[in-house]
Design a protein around this nucleic acid. Structure first.
Length: 286
DNA sequence: CATACGTGGGT
DNA sequence: TACCCAAGTAT
């Protein structure tokens, strides 16, 4: 089964930037941040621009955090930009400017969790670790557990499930990447392409006749239209577009509900995504 | 452990 | 149109 995944990945895997020979660990770190909850197609152009401007952790650490937030543009979840900048600073201060290869050291970096730490360790440094993302959880749910989808994350169990499947250490990166790619291209959330799947013959879910999902279901996303999150996004868009500071009066034009706008602004201040400057004005962090 | 956190494309 | 989903993390 492991070799089937690896063989399939070699012929059918996409030629993505972070899979190019010579792609740096810093490039891997940046790409993994951008890929968190964000489609590949939206990441690629922004990643290229980012690495051209900030090819090393030291380069990013030398820029103001607000520059990172502005360059993040509309990728979404802008605190990732703040965390990425903080990562660059920490890497310069504590790791001599080099991205650490150790999972525990990676986990100490801001915005780096169980997925990102192992993805960097495995894909940038060839470590023998289980990488668990939503694609891999779905493939395991179907092929191994015989369930229709992955349900909510159970990090400890998910890591154990993937660990049990890992091949020999030298094959670990290709297997992890192949499982992820299989979930992204073939074993998709909607309309899986089982006829293209290299392991469909041993798929517990397929062989059971595609039964309905059993157990806890994925948490449903709340509506975005009219939400506090959308209000925050509107404020951030105004700040990104501004050359310098923005007054509270100008912010009132971007969102009709003043109570909601107030929550958005105070939340963004608390998160460090915006700063209050003198005379009732705001700016991106310096 | 459930929830907050952006944004846009596909169906 | 409305809903689903996308290489998660922090609290």
């Amino acid at each position: 089964m492991q070799q089937d995944i690896i063989d399939w990945f070699e012929t059918e895997g996409r030629d993505l930037p972070w899979r190019q020979p010579g792609f740096t660990p810093w490039g891997s770190l940046v790409s993994e941040f951008m890929l968190q909850q964000t489609p590949v197609a939206r990441v690629i152009p922004r990643l290229n621009d980012w690495l051209k401007r900030w090819p090393t952790p030291a380069a990013l650490a030398a820029s103001p955090a607000g520059d990172a937030v502005r360059a993040w543009d509309n990728l979404g979840y802008p605190r990732r930009a703040l965390w990425l900048h903080a990562c660059a600073v920490a890497i310069v201060d504590k790791h001599n400017g080099e991205v650490p290869s150790d999972v525990d050291q990676l986990l100490e970096l801001p915005g780096v969790g169980p997925y990102t730490a192992r993805a960097i360790a495995v894909f940038a440094f060839g470590a023998h670790e289980p990488v668990v993302d939503t694609n891999i959880r779905r493939v395991i749910a179907r092929h191994t557990l015989g369930n229709a989808d992955q349900g909510p994350p159970r990090t400890s169990q998910d890591l154990a499930d993937m660990s049990a499947l890992l091949p020999s250490p030298e094959l670990s990166p290709a297997f992890n990447a192949g499982m992820m790619e299989l979930g992204a291209l073939v074993c998709t959330a909607k309309k899986p392409q089982c006829e293209k799947c290299p392991i469909s013959g041993t798929c517990a879910w397929k062989n059971a006749g595609y039964p309905d999902h059993v157990g806890a279901k994925k948490n449903v996303q709340k509506k975005y239209e009219g939400s506090d999150r959308q209000a925050r996004g509107a404020v951030m868009a105004v700040l990104r577009a501004a050359d310098n500071t923005v007054t509270s009066t100008e912010l009132e034009e971007c969102w009709p509900d003043s109570a909601q706008l107030g929550r958005a602004v105070s939340g963004l201040l608390r998160d460090g995504l915006i700063e209050l400057v003198a005379d009732d004005s705001y700016q991106l962090p310096a």
